[in-house]
Amino acid sequence: MLAFVARRFGTMVLTMLCLTMVVFFMVNLEPNLKKLAISQLDMRSSQEHIESWLVKNGYRQNFFMRYGQWLGVVQKQPYTDPVTGRVSPRFSYCNEPAEPHYSGILQGDFGCSTKFKTTVSAKLFPALGATGILMFWVMVVMVPIALLIGILAGMREGTRTDRTLSVASIATTATPEYVSGVIFTVIFASWLGWLNGSSASATGPGGVTFYNFTLPVMTMAIYGIGYIARMTRASMVEVMTQQYIRTARLKGLSFSAVVVKHALRNALIAPFTVIMLQFPWLLTGVVIVEVMFRYQGFGYTLVEAAGNNDIDLLLGCSLVSVFVVLFTQLISDVGYAYLNPRIRVQ
């Protein structure tokens, strides 16, 4: 078991290295660097001005050198003026020291955000916290509802309840966040006026309230509900045909007792994996919902970073999201083996 987890961690680190390298390559493409330089200077900067800015800030160094600097295995160099020989830090707003130093991911330094003029950690971690709150409420709403729908539908296969609930869950999987978000906003914010169509105030002093937070949570939950419910239903249907369920029925237990005591625990193993594997999907959902409802979380930061080609911030975002994806996969595998003694980790 330990060897399995260790090997998975090894693959995970390798995957993260490859992916960040790809992202690093993409954000350092010539047009993207130009875009960054223009957004940092101004629209009418001359070609030479842009070029000198890029050189000055170290964007013209060798690709692998720069990737190494970001990782923390190569020293970051301060800017040395070629004429006067004066040494100054590259990004003064991040308190970079004016001498060569190791400062990358391995040292816990995520770099410097050119868009928000602060360190990436100062921007990224509060945003992650805000998204954590959103994710928490989404899970609280989504998981019980989805499991309940799945169990009710799978309990008696082929009945009217089953068909209705199945079609309903198919319908929710056909409703991506940007569709349900618009529809819910129209109904609950524009027509009824019950809820706030924007969550911008949720990260402010007022904090999260029912009024400003229900719409994003509802929008995100609805897309996941259908999928988890269908998996739960399939798992439940399979369990209900097992011999031990028939035995339990034949020995005179009531139907509800059979479902709650015998079927439920076995039927919930598969949905556990599915719920864990939902996290990567939720990540995309987070981006859409946070942009739609103007909630200043991780997704909002990612879009800002990508839109302005904020290299270090975007790399930080991709590192975090790739970590979330791989880590939940690991948990789902380990948890599956733990919950189901029949599966032994090879």
Binding site: T15, L19, V23, P280, L283, T284, V287, I288, G299, L302, A306, C317, S318, S321, V322, V325, L326
Partner: peptide, 8 residues
């Protein structure tokens, strides 16, 4: 590729 969030 699957570990990439689609939107990124």
């Amino acid at each position: 590729v699957l570990a990439f969030p689609v939107i990124l």
